[in-house]
Simulated scan of single mutants.
Amino acid sequence: MIANTPQPPYYAVIFTSIRTGVNDDYDDMAGEMFRLAATQEGFLGVESARNKIGITVSYWQSPESIKNWKANTQHMLAQKYGREKWYAKYKVRICKIEHDYEL
């Protein structure tokens, strides 16, 4: 589903990943992180797709809301598990959306 975001400016966190073969609790944690992010102040939406490479883009009102999400205790635990067992490689990019359009 395509996120319904407001008029720019707003911010995007682009999380690109390659998984390991370990699936222990991954789907449950991923679902919980989507639900938890949606309750965070400043959260605007999320889009995610996975084939060989996974890409999740979350949208936020401000850099401060992104910092608060990164520092969320439950999210920090998910990050730890990701580094230790779920991701062979990942990259995070943060950018300011200055213009968007849609059909």
Results as ranks from 00 to 15, higher is better:
29 M>S: 05
79 Q>I: 08
34 F>M: 07
11 Y>W: 15
15 F>E: 02
82 G>M: 09
79 Q>R: 15
24 D>F: 01
90 Y>Q: 12
28 D>N: 12
39 T>L: 11
54 G>S: 13
49 A>P: 03
60 W>I: 05
26 Y>A: 04
63 P>Q: 14
67 K>E: 13
65 S>T: 06
45 G>T: 01
26 Y>L: 15
40 Q>H: 11
25 D>M: 11
29 M>W: 11
38 A>L: 03
29 M>A: 08
76 M>T: 15
54 G>D: 07
34 F>K: 10
39 T>A: 08
47 E>W: 03
71 A>P: 07
57 V>Y: 01
76 M>Y: 06
19 R>F: 01
51 N>D: 07
60 W>M: 03
89 K>S: 10
66 I>T: 07
12 A>V: 08
64 E>L: 10
91 K>Q: 14
37 A>C: 03
72 N>M: 04
87 Y>E: 01
68 N>K: 15
85 K>T: 12
28 D>A: 15
11 Y>T: 11
60 W>A: 00
24 D>R: 13
67 K>W: 00
70 K>P: 00
95 C>P: 03
36 L>N: 04
47 E>K: 05
87 Y>M: 09
49 A>L: 04
42 G>R: 14
48 S>Q: 11
62 S>P: 05
29 M>F: 10
10 Y>T: 08
33 M>I: 13
32 E>I: 02
53 I>R: 13
8 P>A: 11
53 I>S: 06
41 E>V: 09
86 W>E: 02
9 P>I: 07
12 A>R: 13
72 N>I: 06
15 F>Y: 13
68 N>G: 02
65 S>L: 03
85 K>C: 02
79 Q>F: 00
45 G>V: 01
64 E>F: 01
7 Q>E: 11
70 K>L: 07
